[in-house]
Structure formats: C-alpha cells, structure tokens
Amino acid sequence: MTDATHSAAIPALAQAQSYPVIRLSPEVASSAERWIAVEAPVAIEVNGLGYAVMMASPAGLVEFGTGFVFTEKLVATLDDLIDVTPHEVAQGWLLRIRVAEHCFAAVRERIRHRIADSGCGLCGLENLEQALRPLPMIETAPLAEPSAIFAALAALPAAQMLNRQTGAVHSAALCSAQGAIELAREDVGRHNAFDKLIGAALLSGRAMDRGFVLLSSRCSYELVEKAAIAGVTMLVTISAPTSLAVERSKACGLTLVSLARADNVLVLNDPHGLFTTTIPAADEMTAAK
C-alpha cells in the first residue's frame, strides 16, 4: 500500500458527544450531562462498486477498511491493497477502497451473493456455503502462558479510553505472550473493533501470532473466522461464545477462551494442550487430600 493511503487517514474525530439527560433516582430527579458514543453509517466501496454499509465509530477508518478487506478475503496481502480513502458525506462516511485488479474477481463474486446489508456478519450472503467459508488451519501453538490472560484482563480497562467515557463500545486488543497490551482499538461494533485492530496490525507490520487477541464482546462465529484469517493463534473473549463459534474454532485449530474474568476463564478449545497441562492429574489431587 502506498504512502498516499496513510496520508488519506482522517484527523482525530470526536467519537463521543455530550447530551443533556435527567438522572432519576427513587428520591430525586436532577439534570446531568452524559457522554454518548458516536455511531455513523460507513458505506464501503471497492473499486467503484458498493460492497457494504456498516454502522461504526467514525475514527480509524483507514485501519477499519484495511482490516475489513483482509478478513473478507478480498485481498491476501497488504500489497494487494492500493488505497483506502475516507470521505465525510451528508449521511455519514464513504470509505473508498482500491484493490489490485487480480483481486477484483473475488470482489465481484462476493457482491453477487449479497442481497442485503446486515450487522450480523453475514452481510446478506445468499447461502450457507458462502457463510461458512473454508478457514486456514492454525498449526502454530500459542506462545502465551495462561497467566498472561489474567494480566491482559487487568490491563484492558486502561486501554479502553472511549468506553470509560461512554460505556457503550467494544474493544479489541492485541496482547503479547506475557499479557501486555500492544495495540487496542474501540468501536460501537465488535466486528468493527476487531477489523480496526487487524488493520492497525497490518499497517504497522505487527504479527498477530505471537501472543493473543482479547475482545470485550461475546464470541460469535465470525469473530473466530476473522481471528483465523488474521493468523491469530488464541482468541480470548470476555463474554460467552455461541455453539457455532466453538465448532468453528475446533475446525480451524484456534485456541478459544471465553467468559474471561479476573478470577477464572472458560477454555472452549485447547488443541495444543496449553491449559490441560496446568490441571493436576486425578492421582495428584487424591494424594493431596
């Protein structure tokens, strides 16, 4: 991708707006101000063709577009992406993306199967074969120790600046093998936050297979798919997964951890035995009694 793409990045935008509210308690009502997360429609255009309309936080749109075309498998490498340019329009934002000509057949094929726009991740895909696309197998074992998950959970609030202000956005964080947060992105949509994180990693040349990704949301199957496509070896989510998310993680060999809390986590898929080795054997537990 050329330097022109980076120069097209929009300046820092207000991601929250202050609104007058009435704070009501059983005893009294009072006037107050509340910061509300900004949500805006972002129309994505690829090589001149309308591709999707997503509801998103209107910041980091170059990163968002980069991650979006990558996880949609419209491009295979950053070299296939020519330009990402956001434009503010009356109704919201227009994200104009140009990809290499040899990638355009994939764009046309995906558009052919779209019948509606949706925030669920299917985006109007016509059939199940298109929805449950083949995923790359993850052969590499995660490098992170189990303790790194708890370190990242403790560090995440400091990286959630917009969420601290509004309490209404999702976060996606790239964490080191020791649990340090290396990159974090926020958005009103959990898919968008993850796409922004993937885009930021691509643009900065950061590998996503060294540590793990921590998401503040529930784990739906399309987040597992994005992780697999981006080369993530372990995905950790704060809320619960769906059954399809678990099955897709098993199909592609992604280590999946959900319901991550400060005191315990739930391991749904552990293909490399990262966690089972930490559980005492039955005879050891008997001997300890």
Rank of each mutant, 00 (worst) to 15 (best):
V42E: 04
V42N: 11
V42K: 00
V42D: 02
A43M: 13
A43Y: 08
A43F: 08
I44E: 00
I44G: 01
E45P: 05
E45C: 09
E45T: 14
E45R: 14
E45L: 11
E45D: 13
N47I: 02
N47P: 10
N47V: 08
N47M: 08
G48Y: 09
G48E: 09
L49Q: 14
L49F: 11
L49W: 08
G50L: 13
G50K: 13
Y51R: 01
Y51D: 06
Y51P: 03
V53P: 04
V53F: 01
M54W: 12
M54A: 13
M55S: 08
M55D: 00
A56C: 03
A56H: 07
A56L: 10
S57Y: 00
S57K: 03
S57W: 04
P58N: 04
P58R: 06
P58S: 01
P58G: 05
A59I: 02
A59H: 09
A59V: 03
A59W: 10
G60N: 01
L61Y: 02
V62G: 01
V62R: 02
E63F: 05
F64G: 02
F64L: 15
G65M: 03
G65A: 02
T66A: 07
G67P: 02
F68E: 13
F68W: 15
V69M: 12
V69A: 05
V69F: 09
F70I: 07
F70C: 00
T71Q: 13
E72N: 07
K73A: 13
K73W: 09
K73D: 02
K73T: 15
K73M: 12
L74F: 09
L74I: 14
L74A: 07
L74P: 08
L74T: 05
V75D: 06
V75S: 11
V75E: 08
V75A: 05
A76P: 06
A76K: 04
A76G: 15
T77S: 15
T77I: 09
T77K: 11
L78K: 13
L78D: 05
L78V: 15
D79W: 06
D79S: 14
D79R: 15
D80G: 11
D80L: 10
L81D: 00
L81F: 04
L81G: 01
L81E: 01
I82R: 14
D83V: 06
V84A: 08
T85A: 14
P86T: 04
P86V: 04
P86D: 05
P86R: 11
H87R: 15
H87K: 14
H87F: 08
E88V: 13
E88S: 12
V89W: 06
V89Q: 12
V89Y: 06
V89F: 04
A90C: 04
A90P: 03
A90M: 06
Q91L: 10
Q91V: 12
Q91N: 13
Q91Y: 11
G92T: 12
W93R: 03
W93N: 03
W93D: 02
W93L: 07
L94M: 14
L95A: 08
R96T: 11
R96C: 12
R96L: 06
R96M: 07
I97Q: 01
I97P: 06
I97V: 15
I97G: 01
R98H: 13
R98A: 15
A100V: 02
